[in-house]
Amino acid sequence: MADSGVVPMDELQNEIFKMVQEDMGKKQLKAKDITNAMIQKFGEEKCTKETCKEAIRTLIDSGKLVYGYFGGSSSIQVPHKEGSEPDK
């Protein structure tokens, strides 16, 4: 398969997931932070805002990542049981 010059979608998704997982509990990542980090990692020729947007969308839709919310602001996180959630 010829190299199209674009980072494969599954590789991009894996990198995004890894980044979010590593930053859990340290940083509230937004879509913009992830996009900028991926463009820096792969270079603008191989990774664009649009491909990052698509990768994030797929990860959210599959449930591997979720949106978190606090104080009117959102972030992207790995699903987990929240500290504030009472035990059943």
Binding site: Y67, P79, E82
Partner: peptide, 18 residues
């Protein structure tokens, strides 16, 4: 206040409260 609650695919529309 806050948290991960929501419906699949959406990042808005639900505000978590416990």
């Amino acid at each position: 206040h806050g948290g991960l609650v929501g419906v699949r695919g959406y990042g808005g529309g639900v505000i978590g409260r416990y």
